[in-house]
Simulated scan of single mutants.
Amino acid sequence: MNRRAIYVATSHDCAANLAGEAYLIKQDLEHILYLWVNDPCIVVGRFQNPYSECNLERMDAEGVQLVRRNSGGGAVYHDKGNLCFTLIGKKDSSTREENFALVLAGLKKLGIEAELSGRNDILSQGKKISGNAFQSTATKFCHHGTLLITSDLSVMANYLTPSSTKLASKAVKSVASRVGNLSEVKPDITTKEVEDALIEAFCDKYGPTDVTMIDFKKFAEAKADYRLFGDRNLILEKTPQFTHFVHHRFSWGECSLHIDVHKTKITKVRLFTDALDTSLPERITNNLEGLSYAKTALLKASDKCRDEDVLELLTYLIEQI
């Protein structure tokens, strides 16, 4: 029996492709290479806070999908100029070292010299062209990564740079890196060339293997798990509890506001102020606690608010979220 497989996704929906990856991890195979390309999206790590990693408002306005993966690591931007690869093997025999060696071998076939940097990155000519993350199940080791080929790096900061809001969280923060495309090293490179090189490197190592094209957006097992990766409400609900800190001088006085958020809701508000009106903290707390942590919820609250001092604070918060 052939104990290896190569899959190339025809879907460009990142949540569907990650659901497909989750399906492949469960398959009784010794070695799998899975290649996939996504429409514009931000993919956050398993324990990250999208509120602090992403500009969610701009993503919504420009149709950039928010996705959460099962592996750890930082937030990344994907588009069709980026090739994702996944290598799945047995937990007791697969290693990240052999996987990195396979990817480097594939790049070398294209005449591209690259090297590992730290535990998770691949560099070429001093720039990061690949970020990688890992996850394990009881029996499988999954290594997935990106290869920047012709990605539009100019828009990356539009979505990965958060607003000026100060957020404190137990979630994992992303680390900024100097990134570059493979096209800077080999100007005429195409995604198909990189796919073919990785497939050839996989076959060199594990033996000849047929390539299966698959659309995980239509694949029943992947469709069942789609919401685990692509449902916006579920992604935000899984965000670790965090606190939004606000410091501002209002017409009624200076204010430091601590807003605790859990499962998309404002759960607790603490206000420190030099305002002369001692009833103001309680009025602000009553207007904020229980609201969804979202611009739309604050807009609705401000429309109903008849307290001018509270309304001034709500108006400011709307600009910060």
Rank of each mutant, 00 (worst) to 15 (best):
V194L: 11
G81S: 06
S93Y: 00
Q65E: 12
V175R: 12
L234W: 09
T278A: 12
L148R: 05
L236T: 05
V175A: 09
V44G: 00
G207S: 08
H12V: 04
R178V: 12
L83T: 02
L107H: 10
K186E: 12
N38P: 00
Y226G: 04
K268W: 05
C14P: 04
H12S: 10
R4S: 09
I266V: 13
T191E: 03
A15D: 00
H248R: 15
S151M: 09
G131M: 07
A75I: 08
K109P: 01
S130W: 10
F47H: 15
D152Q: 13
C54Y: 00
D277Y: 05
G131I: 08
F202S: 05
L298I: 12
L35H: 06
D60V: 14
E282T: 11
L83V: 04
K170A: 14
I266W: 02
L102N: 07
R227Q: 15
D204W: 07
L160Q: 09
T86P: 01
H143G: 04
H244M: 11
A220V: 13
F229H: 03
V261C: 08
D60S: 15
L276F: 13
D60G: 14
D303T: 13
R249P: 00
Q125W: 04
S117G: 15
L228V: 09
I6K: 08
A224T: 15
G207Q: 06
Y316N: 04
L167E: 04
L299Y: 14
K128G: 07
I88H: 01
L313C: 11
A61G: 11
S154Y: 06
E237W: 02
V310C: 10
S251A: 13
A19E: 02
S130R: 09
T243Y: 01
V211E: 02
D13V: 06
P187T: 07
S279I: 06
R283P: 01
P162A: 01
V175C: 05
F272N: 10
R283A: 10
E221P: 14
F242G: 07
L280V: 11
K80D: 01
K304W: 06
K300L: 15
L123A: 03
L257M: 13
T146Y: 04
F242E: 04
Y206A: 01
T10V: 04
M1I: 12
T209K: 05
K108C: 04
L317S: 04
